[in-house]
Nucleic acid binder design. Structure first.
Lengths: 188, 188, 188, 188
DNA sequence: TATGAATGAGTCTTCATTCAT
DNA sequence: GATGAATGAAGACTCATTCAT
């Protein structure tokens, strides 16, 4: 039941937004009563928090695997991180959209937690880039911090326009992003 | 007064979000009464619409100047567009954040209008890239549509983290973005 | 202008009802501003009162002519009163509907006045019937007071269904009413 | 509770009118909170609709009994219908007044429904008269449609003046109406 | 586990009215 | 005569949340 509530909430929050989704909407979708909702969660915000946590923890897990794999080059790692961020398979895609859009509706504490975790992704990208700069995979003169934010922006923004049934798959999109970021768009 | 209401609304919508800003909040900030608000605007949504329109129209105007200037190379134009998007001079920065975050709270009609205009920016970037591909300024094998969305993402996302008083100026940020996109981050 | 406001108000009150008609509606219909309205009338209720007064005074005037005409039989007089009530010539028809429907929105004092005048019509009918009973024109055993209220009901109700462009004219309707009331519908 | 809300609303709508009765008035009368009202009804209009439906359905039921009773003459039936309409036994009397006065505040759909049902009463009276004309109970030359509207008017109007504690009972009033309509007020 | 009645603060919005100009 | 900016009380309705059962 807790699971079912979560899934329903992800759908609704993604579709209508957190503020615009009422408890009534949620319990109607599930054909249960309000009491049931409050038996499992103590507030609407708690549901949001759980969604955030599930999403970001999944991400961080993936990320750690990538970072710890000693066999990979830094470019491979960067590719892996970009793919991870762009990947849009349900239900992670919906969670991702909720994550990026509804961060502000978390309570003070939960927001700090979410931000801190979100930052780990940024830091990971930045570290990979810096490591690549040091071992010659990347140009030594790039501004790693800003480039990182640029890459993050490109990836996170994809949740705003990406359509799974569209012209390109999520993998193709990440490939293009990686190519753009690594080779640039001007001819050599 | 209409002007004052708008400015206040931009502040509040940016700070607390559209849904979370009540008419009461707005009129309290201005030390007027609700009646006054509704004398100038017929709904909260109308204010949002005006903010959107002001922002996007300003953008499109700048954009048109860039596109019509025959003396520029396509790379110059791209740089111009990126600079235009990243530029965060007050009060456009707040408007920009409101624009990107609260699009969904517009009414059906206004949303269509806003989306159509927003799309003009995307189309402009894409056209510049395609033109550059044709005249050899850019590689002939890039996927212009996705690259465009990547660039847009990097730029639009900057409203989430850019601080005018921070380490880099908005011009520096756009320079890094342009460099990243054009040269790539790998050495030649 | 005062005249124009009145005419417009009759239209609007008749169409939407008094409570549902806002000052804004009124001034919009006239393409003037609220200030103008309040220059001529000191409240919405005052307009309603004037409409009531105009209608009922017109009625009472007609009624008095009928009653004072010594040449008429009581049956003639009754016919005259019924015709007077049913008559739906514009703009009296709309005023009549407003009169009957919106009485309750008058202020205490105005309501008393309106009720008193309205009562004069009832009393007049009753007197004509009693006079007819005394001189043999009407049956001596009718309950004049209730019959009066029945006749009034039939007439006043006609404003709810009568359509000038309908199958019968207002004169035909009153003829039928008079016939029904005088002869009854059973055969002799 | 739903029952209690309905009873209270009938009182208030009858006394002050629908538009003039606020939700606050209603819940204050019941010593509950607004939330409670909206737990049972989803709008003020819904309450009005229920009141209309209860009243008119009760009426139509009574009416059908009358029409189906083969032992009655048409005059009996007409008497029955008039009695039914004039009868003012609590709480139907208040409902009746609300019904006739507040019809216009129903939503489009509910209004159509109410009007259709209200029309059934008119049609029933007309049919009884026509049937009486055919079997010789009533004069063959009466205009059944207008006479019907006259009778309806007399009856419906009674809700405006009838007082249960007054000089005449509701049964006496209907008797006078029937006598007036059938015999007429002129001597044979 | 789950219900459903009840709460009460809060939402956006409308409105009749006033008044300085 | 007429304007239009401003008021503030009141309107209908929503909502997250609680709690006895």
């Amino acid at each position: 039941m807790k699971e079912k509530i979560l899934v329903t909430c992800i759908q609704l929050f993604e579709h209508k937004g957190f503020s615009e989704t009422s408890i009534q909407d949620i319990v109607d979708s599930l054909a249960v009563t309000k009491g049931t909702f409050y038996y499992y969660f103590k507030s609407k915000e708690e549901v949001l928090m759980v969604i955030h946590r599930m999403y970001i923890d999944t991400l961080l897990e993936q990320q750690n695997k990538l970072l710890e794999d000693g066999a990979l080059t830094n470019k491979d790692r960067l590719r892996g991180l970009v793919e991870m961020l762009v990947t849009n398979i349900t239900p992670l895609g919906k969670s991702a959209r909720v994550f990026h859009r509804e961060l502000r509706h978390l309570s003070e504490d939960h927001m700090k937690e979410a931000r801190a975790k979100r930052d780990q992704v940024r830091v990971a990208i930045e570290k990979v880039i810096v490591a690549g700069m040091e071992n010659g995979e990347f140009r030594p003169d790039v501004k790693a911090d800003i480039v990182t934010l640029g890459i993050l922006g490109a990836c996170n923004w994809s949740y705003q326009w990406f359509k799974p049934e569209g012209k390109y798959s999520d993998l193709e999109v990440s490939e293009v992003f990686i190519d753009m970021v690594c080779q640039g768009i001007t001819p050599k």
